[in-house]
Design a protein around this nucleic acid. Structure first.
Length: 480
RNA sequence: GGUCUCAUCGUCUAACGGUCAGGACACCAGGUUUUCAUCCUGGCAAUCGGAGUUCGAUUCUCCGUGAGAUCACCA
């Protein structure tokens, strides 16, 4: 068997439009994309829409959108065209029948005359005998001429195969897994098993990168490659991503989330790419945070993990915080447009940027922005439980509260409200009130923000401004 | 049941056959002149079991065990 290892690198992602994109699918796409980008090759998107029954309306658009949102760009595909168009299998039916005809002509394909019921009966008896179902054991002696109304089956030649997988290494199976698989269904559409081989050959695909579920079919594919006299591409098998609990492959039923939902929840595309890449891959160093260009540079299939990996939301959240902190402020500002609290609607860009700079270090997701910044833009409702539930503040009497707030009010009235001046004022207040910072500062922070947490006090006050700060202190004084 | 694949802290993972089995998330404890978060420091925590090869095995071999995939006119 020759391989195409020295040819131009062309990888593809070939999803079927039967649902949304979840992390498992994205990872297969991402790894194929990284291989292509690293080598300066091409990344092709092909839609395998050969099962009309399972097709879900809008999912093709969804797949395109999800890939685009993560920056996994394709060079050829149904939307952008390319030298091997069309990239929609339903528009390539003539190509498959032409290739199927080659197999018929060489005696390697035949019509399947069984009815569904007959087939079911055979399958059932195989199951009863605790044997794997093999159609070729029941291969008809004199099959009718194929007229398209029946499935067309491959006439296999069972044998042992050894092949190489870029991730799993050297693999092999015996002849007893090779069977007469269906090439063309009775509705005229090819099966995945046949169509992908034809397309990958026609489109000059150099690497087939796909999930573990296809590994059992691999010997059948090799048998077909031989029958067609095709060069065998490079194979790479991706391990599964496991569901959060249990030992199952992550599927839609096990809580697999649409990647676009993660973006809506305030995760950055670069976080998703970094996280998904590091589920099953690392560069051998202790680096955890990778930019996309670093991934392109460093990725290699031979360092992909062989075993499945489990999706860990906590780690994803941590990683998102890391990537948020890596962004220049202006870049971050562009991305949080949809995440401001409602009260920020008429606020100037300048103020919003100041606020954003204060909270950038504490965002884990962009969604956190709303809860973290509301009090900068509108007077927050006073929530005295924050004081009552604070161990230190709860001990203060009304008089003490009054005194402290009044002292703060007076002192800030004389401050020019730069962060430095505020810090100076705060330090002075510690002396004049002979109070501990844990009490004095907590109190001030609480009554100006009424939020469970906030950035450094002097910066918070400075951005709020003198007028607002004083009015909130005053409002608190009146409530005591 | 047949066939195939996989197996290191709870999770993601590192380790030319020679390391005190390393890092990260999570968790716990301290620290950074307020809180929460960030950040820093420290701690907890793993080679599935049994043989074999070897001076030496997480690493190679075999046998178990466990987990997953597949056995469709789905991909």
């Amino acid at each position: 068997m020759r391989t195409m290892s020295d040819a131009i690198i062309r990888t593809r992602f070939a999803p079927s439009p039967t649902g949304f994109m979840h992390v498992g699918g994205i990872r297969t796409a991402l790894f194929a994309w990284l291989v292509a980008r690293q080598a300066g090759g091409a990344f092709i998107l092909r839609l395998e829409d050969t099962d009309q029954k399972r097709e879900v309306a809008g999912s093709a658009e969804h797949i395109l959108m999800a890939l685009g949102a993560l920056g996994i760009t394709h060079d050829e595909g149904p939307d952008v065209g390319g030298p091997y168009a069309p990239y929609l299998q339903s528009e390539r039916l003539g190509i498959y029948t032409a290739w199927a005809q080659k197999l018929i002509d060489s005696g390697r394909a035949y019509a399947d005359p069984y009815t569904a019921a007959e087939l079911d009966a055979i399958r059932e008896s195989a199951r009863a005998d605790k044997k794997a179902f093999l159609y070729r054991d029941y291969r008809p002696k004199n099959p009718p001429t194929w007229d398209g109304s029946m499935p067309l089956r491959f006439k296999s030649e069972p044998k042992t195969y050894h092949w190489h997988d870029e991730v799993l290494g050297d693999l092999s199976t015996g002849p007893d897994v090779i069977d007469d698989i269906i090439l063309i269904k009775s509705d005229g559409f090819p099966t995945y098993n046949f169509a992908h081989i034809v397309d990958d050959a026609e489109m000059n695909i150099s690497h087939i990168i796909r999930g573990q579920e296809f590994i059992a079919s691999q010997p059948n594919y090799l048998n077909i490659y031989e029958a067609l006299g095709l060069d065998v591409p490079i194979f790479a098998t991706m391990p599964h991503i496991m569901a959060v609990s249990g030992n199952k492959k992550l599927g839609k039923r096990d809580g697999a989330k649409d990647v676009l939902d993660y973006l809506k929840d305030g995760y950055l595309p670069e976080t998703m790419v970094n996280f998904i890449a590091s589920l099953g891959w690392n560069d051998g160093t202790e680096q955890e945070i990778f930019t996309i260009s670093e991934l392109i540079k460093k990725f290699s299939l031979d360092r992909v993990q062989k075993s499945g990996a489990r999706f860990d939301d906590k780690r994803l959240e941590w990683m998102n915080g890391q990537h948020i902190r890596l962004l220049p402020l202006d870049d971050l500002y562009e991305r949080v447009t949809d995440f401001w609290p409602a009260s920020a609607v008429n606020v100037s860009e300048d103020l919003k940027k100041q606020v954003l700079a204060l909270v950038q270090d504490r965002l884990k997701t962009l969604k956190d922005l709303a809860v973290l910044t509301g009090y900068f833009f509108a007077d927050p409702p006073a929530d005295w439980s924050l004081i009552e539930n604070n161990k230190q503040l709860a001990k203060l009497s009304k008089d003490e509260l009054n005194q402290l707030l009044q002292a703060a009010y007076d002192a800030f009235g004389a401050s020019d409200f730069t962060p430095e001046a505020i810090q100076e004022t705060l330090n002075q207040l510690l002396i004049t009130t002979s109070q501990k910072p844990a009490i004095l500062f907590s109190l001030i922070r609480t009554v100006v923000s009424w939020a469970p947490f906030s950035p450094a006090l002097n910066h918070t006050l400075s951005v709020l401004g003198k007028e607002v700060s004083l009015s909130r202190l005053d409002a608190a004084l009146k409530r005591v």
